[in-house]
């Protein structure tokens, strides 16, 4: 009896191990034009539409993160905003700009047949959408980066290739310029790993304050919160942006810059 049980167990183990062989960790990385892509399907399919494909690269070249994620109110986690066609038509979310004035109108209640190609500019999952902007043409002379979109966005702004807008009339509040907080070091736990110099300046220029605090970074006192790479890789802290839209975590030494003597 025990013997049968044991062999059944062994068999199960063999099967389990074989099935493990099918799951790998070494998946394909998104291509430059795919990086930062978000698929929106909270309501599309239910409404008989193809899900929306949103590309961050085009929008981030034109607008600051803050403008969309603070002023317009898009959540930072894909699929959690719950955007509806009606919202867009009332001038919220996509409709804040896509109102037929600033940019082509997002969503309508009446779709003229000859114009249904308009819908598919956004509702394009699995289709080859005819986009107004082609990634390669648009980013042709942008400074190149190694990962993500293959673009060094920081340099792109420094060299004037992009000038993201931070104010949207009727939506944004007129504000004073921001007083930049100091940069600070984050000491790595692993011996020999360079320290991180966190630049508030680089981050606030596109994000402002309330995009990161306190939702993403609650730690008030320096050193009070211990950040672990494991959590960051799981999409917490820096990982909220730096694995989805901003340069990915593969680029270790872009943050771990201060060589330990």
């Amino acid at each position: 009896m025990k013997k049968t049980l044991f062999f059944t167990g062994l068999l199960l183990l063999l099967f389990a191990s074989l099935s493990l062989a099918l799951t790998g960790v070494k998946k394909r990385r998104p291509l430059p034009y795919e990086y930062g892509r978000v698929e929106l399907n909270n309501f599309s399919e239910k409404a008989g539409q193809i899900p929306v494909v949103f590309d961050h690269w085009l929008h981030r070249a034109k607008f600051t993160c803050r403008l969309c994620h603070v002023d317009i109110g898009f959540a930072m986690k894909a699929g959690t905003t719950g955007i509806k066609a009606a919202d867009n038509m009332q001038g919220y979310y996509c409709g804040s700009c896509h109102n037929d004035k600033t940019a082509f109108a997002a969503c309508t209640t009446t779709i003229p047949r000859q114009n249904s190609s308009k819908c598919s500019r956004c509702h394009s999952l699995g289709r080859t959408a005819v986009k107004q902007y082609d990634f390669r043409t648009f980013t042709q002379d942008f400074p190149k980066g190694r990962f993500g979109n293959g673009i060094d966005w920081e340099q792109a702004e420094a060299t004037g290739k992009i000038a993201p807008i931070d104010f949207l009339a009727g939506v944004s509040i007129q504000r004073d310029a921001l007083v930049v907080q100091k940069d600070f070091d984050l000491i790595a736990k692993v011996k020999g790993m360079p320290e991180i110099i966190f630049s508030h300046k680089k981050h606030t220029v596109w994000n402002g304050c309330e995009l990161c605090h306190p939702e993403i970074f609650l730690g008030v006192k320096k050193g009070a919160t211990q950040y672990s790479m494991t959590e960051i890789y799981d999409g917490k802290y820096c990982g909220v942006c730096h694995s989805t839209v901003a340069f990915p975590l593969l680029d270790c030494q872009r943050c771990h810059t201060k060589q330990v003597q």
Partner: peptide
């Protein structure tokens, strides 16, 4: 409803940040 949703979200971010600043 949408206006309510958007502004409650914006208000939350703003209030939380002031609370964060106060904590600091």
């Amino acid at each position: 409803a949408t206006e309510r949703k958007v502004f409650l979200q914006r208000l939350k971010m703003c209030r939380d940040f002031y609370a964060f600043a106060l904590g600091t």
